[in-house]
Computed example of a mutant assay.
Amino acid sequence: MLSEKQEIRTYILQNLNSYKLDDKLKHETRLYTQLFNCQLWQDASTVAVTMSMDNELNTQPIIDMAINVGKKVFIPRVSKKDLLWFDYSKNRLSKSNFGILEPNQEENLAHSLNEIDLMIVPGVAFTPDNYRVGYGAGFFDRVLSEYSKDTISLVLPPQLIDNFSRNQWDMPVKNMLT
């Protein structure tokens, strides 16, 4: 029997996979504009962001803009049950077991969470009160429970849901752009 979150993931991912490319590009552009104009972005000198998968909001334009305006960009790599944060470098990425591009740098080069000014948090589905359903491994819920600075998620229309049954470890993001 599938859990509610598994059913939500399946439903939303199917919607994202059938999302018309023109609509997706239009909504992505609008979300980028909102992000780049928001005070959180403008005040941050370091930004953490994941490398997106095909059906997700494309994060490469965010990375490119951050670099163009002089921000440091950190991207995560899964290490056991944690995320480690590394400087973004196109030349030092390889596909993980999850199919995501991740840094392949030495662990001693990882940055601490307190070095990140703004974290752009991914997810599969989002509620109006900023809770998210991720891919089910709990990586970002653990990070969000430890990270006290600004967080934001960029949410495409097919990712919005009314609600879901939450567990004690489910953590909201502080800000959402829709």
Score class of each variant (00 low, 15 high):
residue 58 N to W: 02
residue 49 V to F: 06
residue 72 K to M: 10
residue 24 K to G: 02
residue 24 K to W: 10
residue 43 D to N: 13
residue 62 I to N: 02
residue 62 I to S: 04
residue 41 W to S: 01
residue 52 S to T: 01
residue 79 S to I: 15
residue 48 A to V: 07
residue 45 S to Q: 15
residue 70 G to N: 07
residue 61 P to K: 00
residue 43 D to Y: 05
residue 59 T to D: 02
residue 68 N to I: 00
residue 34 Q to T: 01
residue 62 I to Y: 05
residue 82 D to G: 08
residue 49 V to C: 02
residue 51 M to V: 06
residue 60 Q to Y: 07
residue 54 D to T: 11
residue 27 H to K: 13
residue 60 Q to N: 11
residue 41 W to N: 03
residue 54 D to R: 05
residue 31 L to D: 04
residue 43 D to C: 01
residue 34 Q to F: 00
residue 79 S to L: 14
residue 46 T to W: 11
residue 76 P to C: 04
residue 74 F to R: 06
residue 75 I to D: 11
residue 30 R to L: 15
residue 77 R to Q: 12
residue 63 I to G: 03
residue 72 K to P: 00
residue 58 N to I: 00
residue 52 S to H: 04
residue 69 V to Y: 08
residue 29 T to W: 13
residue 37 N to H: 12
residue 42 Q to V: 03
residue 31 L to Y: 04
residue 44 A to V: 04
residue 46 T to H: 06
residue 48 A to D: 05
residue 26 K to W: 13
residue 23 D to Y: 11
residue 62 I to P: 07
residue 73 V to C: 12
residue 30 R to S: 13
residue 54 D to G: 12
residue 60 Q to F: 13
residue 25 L to Q: 12
residue 51 M to W: 02
residue 67 I to M: 04
residue 65 M to P: 00
residue 51 M to S: 01
residue 64 D to G: 05
residue 65 M to K: 15
residue 37 N to I: 06
residue 23 D to E: 15
residue 69 V to F: 10
residue 56 E to K: 02
residue 32 Y to E: 10
residue 28 E to Y: 07
residue 40 L to A: 05
residue 25 L to S: 05
residue 48 A to H: 05
residue 61 P to F: 10
residue 61 P to E: 03
residue 60 Q to C: 00
residue 32 Y to H: 10
residue 60 Q to D: 11
residue 33 T to G: 10
residue 44 A to C: 03
residue 60 Q to P: 01
residue 39 Q to A: 06
residue 57 L to T: 02
residue 52 S to L: 04
residue 48 A to F: 08
residue 32 Y to R: 06
residue 72 K to I: 14
residue 72 K to A: 14
residue 38 C to W: 13
residue 40 L to F: 06
residue 79 S to V: 15
residue 43 D to Q: 10
residue 35 L to G: 03
residue 50 T to H: 09
residue 31 L to R: 01
residue 36 F to C: 10
residue 69 V to M: 12
residue 71 K to C: 07
residue 64 D to F: 00
residue 70 G to S: 04
residue 55 N to Y: 08
residue 37 N to T: 06
residue 64 D to Y: 05
residue 23 D to G: 00
residue 75 I to M: 06
residue 40 L to N: 05
residue 34 Q to Y: 11
residue 66 A to W: 08
residue 80 K to R: 14
residue 64 D to A: 08
residue 68 N to C: 02
residue 71 K to P: 09
residue 33 T to S: 14
residue 56 E to I: 03
residue 58 N to D: 12
